[in-house]
Write a protein that binds this DNA or RNA. Sequence first.
RNA 1: UCCUCGGUAGCUCAAUGGUAGAGCAUCCGGCUGUUAACCGGAGGGCUGCAGGUUCGAGUCCUGCCCGGGGAGCCA
Length: 466
Amino acid sequence: MAWLKVSEALSAGVGTEMTVKGWVRTRRDSKADGGLSFIAVNDGSCFDSIQVVARASLPGYADQIVRLTSGCSIEVDGTLVTSQGKGQAVDLVASTIRVVGWVDDPDTYPIAQKKHSFEFLREQAHLRPRTNTFGAVARLRHCLSVAVHRFFDEKGFYYVHTPIITGSDCEGAGQMFRVSTLDLMKPPTGPDGRVDFSQDFFGRETNLTVSGQLNVETYCTALSRVYTFGPTFRAENSNTPRHLAEFWMIEPEVAFCDLAGDADLAEEFLKALLDTVLSRRMDDMKFFDERIEKGVIDRLRHVIEKPFRRVEYTEAIEILKRSGRAFEFAPEWGSDIQTEHERYLAEEHFKQPVVVMNYPREIKAFYMRSNDDGKTVAAMDVLVPRIGEIIGGSQREERLDVLDRRMEELGLNKEDYWWYRDLRRYGTVPHAGFGLGFERLVQFCSGVANIRDVIPFPRAPKQAAF
RNA sequence: UCCUCGGUAGCUCAAUGGUAGAGCAUCCGGCUGUUAACCGGAGGGCUGCAGGUUCGAGUCCUGCCCGGGGAGCCA
């Protein structure tokens, strides 16, 4: 008898004999027809479970089947029939049920068939994938991951594995996690009394990466179109529903590309991902739409169909000033666009994703390309409803003299960036790229409010269990 | 890190400073081609931790720990 996934079983023809293997979601008993039990079995292959009908005449019915509880693992041999009940099209009428793994004390099984809070399930991260919500999130993550690679592959991008451990502090994007094998209790020190990292594993200070961008730029200036997709670490003490200490980031980098081309790519990319989700994971999307965020499917369709709005930063500030809204932080040219501003632009003013371009240079990173006005840099943020900033990108400064001046202004040590500067010395080329926070994308697609619930094992301040 | 709200049964939550409760879950029984099932019963508590005020603290005060929401930082 063929072993079928539940997703295959549900669409097999009536009369098909099969074996299904999975975990019991619910069991309901009836005394009708001489006694029978209905067992919802889920194997994660799709959102739906299959309803197994177990008659009292089955071997082991009284001492095994009626003792099945949520979480037990079983194998079922049976025949697919048209369901006599209302909730499903087909049933699997069992000829044999083998109990593979019992739940040894059902009273202690945390995933009861009831509503659980996200906060509680976060403390049961090893068992929460057995719930509807986290099963759906897991399949959505997979679907999006595959879509990322497929999109780039079809457009001639190469996937570059940039390092997780970085050999310098020259990334500058906030607090980093140190990587060291030194004895914390008595680290070696130099003559100046400071820790002597030359005796550390790598012979220098090392940290976990905060961005693959600088590294991927090297391959960009050889392979033209590249991207990274890997774990990223920020040691900031951020306590929000949008931040993690460990998250996954997608960073494409394109040679011979300016900011407008960068924004074009970001828009096409986002739309292609959403389109893939709607065409391949409608079962999970329907669940999100019903139970997590009403209207999320329409929201995604809306994003796919309409062109993104593009506004200059300067124009965005004017819009915010003219809005008449009493913002907590008054919008002002030269200041960053606050979260409340982002949400006003994306949710109320434009009611769609908006790309804000050309920010004041003072509030942006050193590697962003200076514009001719002397005041702004070629940076862009893609703002979406609910999430705010989902993509941040820029055209990179490819002119060595301009880059050097900028680094001097910011007090950065040129020696630390010697290989980055080399890219500008040897065949420099205009190029641009962006970073997309993968978990924010999953949030945007699912409507899940807290970023800690769209990654299997969230790492955040005071949170690294599992 | 700042502001704010919270922490009571396995879960979700009640409880004027005066005997700690309900629903769900679990277990037992009943009923039913069931499906958020329904009806009846049972078990289940160091009220986050440590102090303090009081005849008496889940409730008031102080400190700490943890969580939610908002902000900053950002993706």
